[in-house]
Design a protein around this nucleic acid. Sequence first.
RNA 1: GGCAUCGUGGCCGAGUGGCUAGGCGCAGCUCUGCAAAAGCUUGUACAGCGGUUCGAAUCCGCUCGAUGCCUCCA
Length: 493
Amino acid sequence: MQLYKNQTLKVHNSLSGKKEVFQPINEGHIGMYVCGPTVYSNVHLGNCRTFMSFDMIFRYFKHLGFKVRYVRNITDAGHLENDADDGEDKIAKKAKLEQIEPMEVVQRYTVDFHNTLQKFNFLPPSIEPTATGHIIEQIEIIKEILEKGYAYEANGSVYFDVLKFNESNEYGKLSGRKLEDMIANTRELTAQDEKRNPQDFALWKKAEPQHIMRWPSPWGDGFPGWHLECTAMSTKYLGETFDIHGGGMDLKFPHHECEIAQAEASKGKSPVKYWLHANMLTLNGKKMSKSTGNNIYPSEIFTGENDILSKAYAPSAVRFFMMQAHYTSILDLSDDALLASEKGYNRLMDGMENLKNLSTGTKSDFDINTWRQKCYDAMNDDFNTPILIAHLFDAVKHINLIKEGNESISEEDKTLLLNTLNTFVYDVIGLENQSTVKDDSNALNGVMDLLIELRNQARANKDFATSDQIRDKLTALGIQLKDGKDGTSFSIN
RNA sequence: GGCAUCGUGGCCGAGUGGCUAGGCGCAGCUCUGCAAAAGCUUGUACAGCGGUUCGAAUCCGCUCGAUGCCUCCA
């Protein structure tokens, strides 16, 4: 189903700073590249938010019927601690610290990354390439840039010549910076610095003898610069110009700026049609960060073992929390906000359950087709999931009204409503129904049925002392009884 | 200091020239033996000061405040 033919999608392009009508380079096909994690530590929730935003975007594209090639890399080499000459590779540093092989570090945290994303119900990308798997491609690009005269070699390292590049191109166009301003605001080079200018960045770094991660190159043993891997891998799998490049807002400068420079210098054309940037998740009003320790790990949220939150939250509740904010807005994590989202999430899930059991009538008081298009309109407007969710709640409200007998719905509309909700809630937003704790233990269910039966017998006999005793003791155990019209059910907290 | 983004009702969070976003909480009601749960109903807020306009939270200017980037981070 090529739904995209009937929908006009707009995306916020960071390059122009405007919302633009999205038109893929090749009709019906989308190439999307997203900067993945540097696997030198566990992913924290802030990292997850960015990837989740693009997971949602990937999901929506697929739903619209586009053939999407989604490339998300793993940075397993080349990401330096800082830009100084003594800058150390993050992976290598961690390996030294833990006294293990660099590739053990990479393996450990790649596995953690995948496990975490799986809990959040991510779809796997089409290709997940690694930097170390593309050293040859990176070297080839360096050669091209050298040939074009936009880079220079110094003592076994190769640097990108930003000043030279800026003579014919515009360095800083993505982040809204002017090279002159940057020059005026940067520190002076030290005498031993190999770079010609402070703005220059490394394409290839010479490996000192003690350096473990090293590859041979025309300039001697060394390792690639961080910005280069994304250029190499995106070009290889998506071509010299592709549709969408995504990543966290914090990568806009210098990382993405450098990617543009590398691609323009080597291929002579701008690599990306639409730049999409996901905004930061903050904690206590500050950006989550690995280096400052202001962060929380997903596992700490799922187990409740942390100092910030009052309870544990299910992955889907957290996902719902994030989807209630627009991906380009800063979102602050707090217990109050998460608590509110969890309740909203449960309300949505209950609505979905109620819909299944709804009895149908001859007419509908709820215009499903109009409502359905509103859902698409929300997503078509730069993936506005908060608006979409508002519409989903509108549907829940009608479902409840129908359930209470105050409105009716036709069989045909019920099916359409169910399909649409399933599409947006499960396929696009990527939620899972985790609100009802499905305990497979038949023994527990049997015991609970027995207790509920005994309590209801006591209630029928007006023996409220006994019935309340059962209820209160179960509450103390964290089991809540819910008396409804159709009998009593229970949930475990 | 430079560049950028943003300041919305008790909280979270959309919107962006005139029309109730939504969720949570609070309150009222329904249901209930009572409660919980569930459902329904209810909120005219947009940092401050000026300006443009018939009309601005939405555009412009200034002030104040917050955050991000400028050295690693999604």
